[in-house]
Every structure is written in structure tokens, then in C-alpha cells.
Design a protein around this nucleic acid. Structure first.
Length: 245
DNA sequence: ACATTAAAGTCGA
DNA sequence: TCGACTTTAATGT
């Protein structure tokens, strides 16, 4: 199941930001300490609150980072695309995972024991600065989502969530950009703090207007520009003043 | 403007 | 065929 990975090619890591400044023999050493693993879709790689014993690099697939409330409601915090580290509790000064990581699509990961985190940071040039940069980006994204939640109407939030997804995980297809992993109305509602019904109605309306095309678990944005307009909203929120033209 | 409830339709394993 | 997913409409706040 889980296997040692001396057979992995160094080129797997050479282009990725955390490792891009390293020598070949350094990457070899890193790979030799890694465990590689394939995960089916929908499995928990680690759970919120569990002891953070390993950190991970996503080679392929997608990870959904989720928090679960006592009543069982899920909130999707963010999605991790291939090439990024996750489960890096140590970088945040934690010894337990702050959220749950679930595969959004079949995934391939490398992982290392968390005790290697400190040596990696001190020995490998650029590792720390690059990983803190991605941590910063994630915090920035969560930050803008916080503002969206507080100020924007549901249609704008869902439009923004969709746009982020196509930007981060979109794949070009003939008639637009498709989200690269299966995603349901429920998932989208959990990302935007609304219900699956509202998401369904919005997607139906957008499909009628030719902005998106969707089948079950598949969403393609066919007119990103028009969707950007929806994400900015035409109607002003209750207590804001609409500036004159 | 949006959630909730209810019902029914559709798709895939 | 069954359950997961989706849609639609009616009604509530």
C-alpha cells in the first residue's frame, strides 16, 4: 500500500517551487526519504485534530481542505492543486492538523515524517521562503473569502468561487475551461456558505445564459468574462451607495 | 434575497 | 435497481 520511493525520478520535484533551487543530489536525498502513495477519491488523508506526524506533497490530483462542525456541517476551506505542500502543521507552529484533508480526485502524494521539517527548512535553500509564500497565498485567499462572505450576495460569492476554481484547477476544453475534478452543487454550497438548491438554481440560470455548461459533478465555464461581471454584482448591497456613472 | 421543505427526475455503479 | 446527485416549485423568513 504505502511504499518507499527510491525509484522516483528527480524531475518530479525539480520544477516545484519548494525544491527549485536545490542540487540534484539534494533532491535525491529528499526523494529517498519520501513515502509515495496513491489515494482513491474521497478518502481522508488526515483528520482535523489528529497528531500531525507527516507532511505531504501533492504530485497529482486535488485535495479538499475541510473543517467539520459539531453538527456535521462541512465547510470547504480551500482546494490544493498538484505541486503544493499540505499538512504542514509544523510551519504553523502546530502539532495537530488544523483541518481535514480529503481527496477531491484520485491523488498521488509524497510524504515525510514531520521530524524532517526542521532539517528541510534549515538545510534546503529556498524551501522555507517558498513554502511560506504559498502559506501566505492561502491565507490571502481565505481572507478575501471572509470579506466576500460578509459583504457579497450569494450569486457573487458562488461566481467568485467558480472563478477561483477555474483559475487554480481549470483545464482548457473546446468550449471553455472545465474544473479538473468532480464537484457537486453540495461542494460548491459548502465553499460559499449557501445551500445546494441555491447553487443549482444559479448554475441553471447561468447555463441558460450561456456562461457555464454543467453535467453531474462536472462544471465548465464557457464565458469567463460574463461570469466576472456576475461576480461583481449589479445590485448594490443594502447599505452601500451605488456610485453614479 | 435567500433558506427550507417537498417532490420528482436522472444518472451511474 | 439503488442511492447519489440534480432540478423545480411552493412556501417561509
Amino acid at each position: 500500500m504505502r511504499k518507499r520511493s527510491p525509484g522516483l525520478d528527480e524531475s518530479l520535484l525539480t520544477h516545484l517551487p519548494p525544491f527549485s533551487r536545490l542540487e540534484r543530489h539534494q533532491i535525491r536525498a529528499i526523494l529517498d526519504q519520501a513515502t509515495s502513495r496513491r489515494h482513491d477519491v474521497g478518502v481522508h488523508i488526515f483528520d482535523e485534530g489528529a497528531e500531525a506526524d507527516r507532511f505531504y506533497l501533492l504530485l497529482d490530483g486535488y485535495i479538499r481542505v475541510v473543517r467539520i462542525t459539531p453538527t456535521g456541517d462541512q465547510v470547504v476551506a480551500l482546494h490544493i492543486p498538484p505541486g503544493q505542500l499540505f499538512g504542514i502543521a509544523q510551519a504553523l507552529g502546530r502539532d495537530r492538523y488544523p483541518a481535514t484533508a480529503i481527496t477531491a480526485a484520485e491523488a498521488l502524494t509524497l510524504s515525510w515524517p514531520m521530524r524532517l521539517w526542521t532539517p528541510f527548512v534549515s538545510e534546503y535553500d529556498g524551501f522555507a521562503s517558498e513554502t511560506y509564500a504559498t502559506v501566505g497565498n492561502r491565507i490571502g485567499e481565505m481572507n478575501t473569502r471572509l470579506v466576500e462572505m460578509a459583504t457579497q450576495a450569494v450569486e457573487q460569492r458562488v461566481a467568485n468561487a467558480l472563478l477561483r476554481l477555474v483559475n487554480q484547477t481549470g483545464r482548457r476544453v473546446d468550449d471553455g475551461i472545465e474544473i479538473d475534478f468532480p464537484i457537486t452543487r453540495q461542494d460548491l454550497s459548502e465553499m460559499t456558505g449557501t445551500t445546494l438548491h441555491t447553487v443549482s438554481r444559479l448554475l441553471s440560470a447561468w447555463e441558460r445564459d450561456g456562461l457555464v455548461r454543467s453535467a453531474r459533478k462536472r462544471i465548465t465555464v464557457t464565458d469567463a468574462h460574463a461570469l466576472v461581471l456576475r461576480s461583481q454584482g449589479s445590485a448594490a448591497p443594502d447599505d452601500t451607495v451605488t456610485p453614479p456613472r
